[in-house]
Amino acid sequence: MEWFYWLVPWEESILVVAATGSAALFFLRGCALVRPSLHRKLCFWGGLSLVYLVSHTQLDYYSEHQFFIHRLQHLALHHLGPFLIVLSRPCPVLLAGMPSRMRQAFHLMAGWKPIQYPAQALCNPVVAVVLFSMLIGFWLLPSIHFTAMIDWRLYRVMNWSMFLSGLIFWGLVLTPGPVFAVKLSPGSRIGMMLAIIPPQIVIGAIIFFTSHELYPIYTICGRAIGGINALADQQIGGIILWIHGAMMSAVGILIVILMELMLAEYPKHGQKVA
């Protein structure tokens, strides 16, 4: 039962269990009513389980104690996980699977001005791009990173902020329809995905080319994997940030182009694409 041990959370978080648990439950119930396509289901379960696995299993121990694994964790939390979840267009399914009172509360909240204004501000393309890129840079500032890795509260804020900003960004660029009354043209959405590439390349390259240890916390508290020295660990982490950013944007851009082509060709059934 060694493999089972890997699923035991390294640090329990009720919030992670409650969030993933309720999302999974609502999606399951919603599936019975809405009947989404198989590929939407695969995207949702893939994204949700990826986010859960990297944040609530023994993998979290490695993310805390090895810089490049920490970067892989954020690749899953900020890019791949939210990307897949958004691709499954989960909102109608989740809403259908919710208890009716909760659904009403959501609809009420969506129409409430104090919610609408900040939501619209967050969905502004410039804000979304800056937030997405700034968060990567902010948590990688050496002094901030040091504190986030020793303070468990900040560590959780870091991971949640990455996931939520990923959800907002990919939600905006991959959804063809309006999000909180913000309707973006395919061109702007492709532009947004292009805009997040340079900051990631720059930060990744700075980390890769720095010849001293930027993040000594991993040496101070000990590394999880032996045989990889501090600089090698740092360089692999830098490369992951450097390359994957462009990669995810490229995939996103291809998907948007594909969606637009399908919409142009089959306008009535276009919504079924992706």
Binding site: P125, V126, V129, V130, S133, M134, G187, S188, I190, G191, M192, L194, A195, I196, I197, P198, P199
Partner: peptide
């Protein structure tokens, strides 16, 4: 396409 990239 956008000026945001340079800003960010």
């Amino acid at each position: 396409n956008f000026g945001y990239d340079r800003l960010a």
